[in-house]
Design a protein around this nucleic acid. Structure first.
Lengths: 227, 227
DNA sequence: AGTGTGAGTTAGTTTAATCTAAATCAGATC
DNA sequence: GATCTGATTTAGATTAAACTAACTCACACT
């Protein structure tokens, strides 16, 4: 299949595709209002963009239901996600950025970098497979690892887990997690959970005991630990 | 003096300021048509932008004469030039870019990077004073070295020179110069010049003899060599 | 089945940057 | 000094992305 001439996507289009990817990743449709909320934009702006995106074949729109990415749209979204995650990894490992601030910087840069630069960065880093928060980095070919992870808020008491991904971009939460030793790779055991969706208590293998409120626990995504 | 709240400049505004800086650097005014030519934009677009820029106090406009930067405009322009040159230096030294292509990449990135990132890059490079083409890098405080250089097209026969700056962004010319050993720091002696603005012949201290056409020679900016 | 509510869409305006075509100015030429 | 010419500006249209206000749809509830 020949490479088709593709007009460069504008900043906005790229952002829409990324949030549609995230919102529809758990199957199903992304709702107009959710897209609007994530982009901090009024709902009619979304309707307008949705019209253009479906005209150009990047999304499928079912009026009053929501939207889904087409193959083409998914490819474009994964490309932006790769850019974002490579940038975060590079800024962290090569330029001393900490968890706070990387996201914002990457968010701006991802629209300006060339494929060539991203691949140079990836090369300099040794083709990393995960970003600093533990999220998988799509390959240049557009494939992404899809591992089922279990949020710490749902993990059963007694489970031995490995923390794989810290699923937030909020700098305050990120630095709090980092302080608490709650970083990708940490081994932990769930020792308790308060009733009615209360906080989860865990024992960290290499540190002490932590009590994590439900909302925070939802961001911590784990895998059953290999023993 | 307190830092005034400054609205972030758009991509376009920044580009206009940069070319106005370059066009008016040899004193005097930048002409509408020259700005239009450098930005590859129609002259009326320049008139429109000039109106807005002078309203916001970044330039001084004398109708039918041209424009000049104000102090504020000059500061903004030098900031962009610093970003551009730090980026070119970083891409070249840390990510293996060669002379061709760096310019284009930096041109896009300079609008997206934060001051913080630029200063990290500058730090990683050891606060470089010159970019890969030999152009001086403005300091973070907004000062730029202004050394009088002599274009090779004007240098008298017999002069011993040090090549300081290769003043072009054209990738083809840049790689040609690099092949010929005409890079910043090269020592050379002017041995001949053909009449009527003909080519200049130079002997390179560490290589052989080169004949350089007038147009190319204009891009090579030199300093009288220390002996 | 009728209706109310909130989500979604349409209509029409705004802002920034561009364009083409038309008008105007300034300096050079005769 | 009148005129010509090319550079510059003004006028008006276009595109992309956003907004507010007003309308419409789908679906849940009685």
């Amino acid at each position: 299949m020949h490479t088709v001439h593709e007009a460069p996507l504008t900043r906005s289009v790229e952002d829409y595709l990324k949030v549609i990817y995230h919102l529809s990743s758990q199957g199903g449709f992304a709702a107009t209002s959710d897209i609007a909320a994530m982009l901090e934009v009024a709902p009619p702006s979304v309707s307008g963009m949705v019209k253009r995106l479906s005209e150009t074949g990047l999304i499928e729109h079912v009026p009053y239901r929501g939207v889904q990415l087409t193959q083409q749209g998914r490819r474009a979204a994964l490309k932006m996600i790769r850019r974002h995650r490579i940038l975060e990894t590079y800024l962290t490992q090569q330029l001393g950025y900490d968890w706070g601030g990387v996201h914002e910087e990457a968010e701006r840069l991802e629209h300006a970098v060339s494929d060539r630069l991203i691949e140079r960065m990836a090369g300099a880093l040794g083709e990393p497979r995960y970003d600093p928060h533990g999220a998988p980095i799509p390959t240049a070919a557009g494939e992404i690892e899809e591992t089922e992870l279990l949020s710490l808020a749902e993990a059963p008491v007694g489970a031995d887990l490995e923390l794989r991904e810290v699923g937030t971009q909020d700098p305050a939460r990120l630095s709090y997690f980092a302080e608490q030793g709650l970083v990708p790779g940490a081994r932990l055991t769930v020792t308790d959970r308060q009733p009615f969706n209360g906080p989860t208590t865990v024992r960290l293998e290499s540190a002490g005991v932590r009590v994590v409120g439900r909302e925070l626990a939802q961001a911590l995504r784990c895998l059953a630990a290999a023993r």
